[in-house]
Simulated assay, not measured.
Amino acid sequence: MIETFRQYGPALLQGFAMTVFCWAMGAVLSMALGLVIALIQRHAPRPVLWLLRAYIEVIRGTPFLVQLFVLYYGGPMIGLLLDPIPAGILGLTLYGSPYYAEIFRSAFNAVPKGQIEAARAIGMTEPTIVRRILLPVGLVSALPALVNFSIILTKETVILSIITVPELMYQVGRMGAETFRYVETNLALALFFWLLVEAISRTGRRLEAHITQHLTPRT
């Protein structure tokens, strides 16, 4: 078994690096798109709100596997021809953005209206209100949910293997098919994902402690 892991170790590490890359790009881009959607929802006219709500409900109501198949295999029918890695990152972005948008929307709604009204009363513009009130205050309540969904998004990366993205699941599947050691290969998969999730969780806890330190009463 040790010889097997020595032989496939470099491939597993490459697959893990690809998993981290796809997840990081997908998480950052989907979070940014989700933030934009949440901000647009605050002041958009009703037709735009209907379109955004339809987008959110369709994406949240369908499996990521189906979305990825439609994007990668159906995209060429409308001229959207993507390589596996860009298609995987785009798929993660489209899949994650509605969830992040709802997290930001609920966080913005939790900001006391009195603070926003006071800001408008002293002449703050909407971009300034977003930058100095909505984002700082909303981030405090949104951070746990943001970290939690980011962890969920890591596990969705295994689906990218179906479009031949050489991420961890793809490499583990190839290793299992060639060695027939399916128990060991899946244990390796679980270990790598546990390490990634633990790193994200610890980073999230440190960020939460940092941005909420001013809320902790001093003795």
Rank of each mutant, 00 (worst) to 15 (best):
S150L: 05
L146V: 03
P136R: 03
G176R: 04
E167A: 06
I129Y: 13
V137I: 08
F193Y: 12
N148E: 10
Y182Q: 05
L160E: 00
T128W: 15
T179C: 04
Q171V: 08
S141E: 14
L139I: 08
Y182A: 08
M175C: 07
F180R: 09
F180S: 09
V158Y: 11
V158K: 10
A190D: 11
L134R: 01
I151A: 00
A145I: 09
Y170Q: 08
T154G: 01
T179M: 11
L153V: 03
L139Y: 07
A190Y: 04
R132M: 15
V183A: 14
L135Y: 08
S150D: 09
F193N: 00
V165G: 03
L187Q: 11
T157E: 06
R131L: 15
V147D: 02
I133P: 01
L146I: 13
L191N: 06
L168A: 09
V137P: 00
L196P: 02
L134P: 00
L187K: 13
L134S: 02
Y182V: 14
L135T: 13
V140L: 12
V172C: 02
V197T: 10
V137M: 06
L139H: 04
S141V: 07
W194E: 12
A177N: 08
P136C: 10
V137W: 03
I129M: 14
L168R: 06
E184H: 13
L134F: 05
Q171K: 12
L153C: 01
V158L: 11
A177P: 07
I159R: 00
S141K: 07
T164I: 07
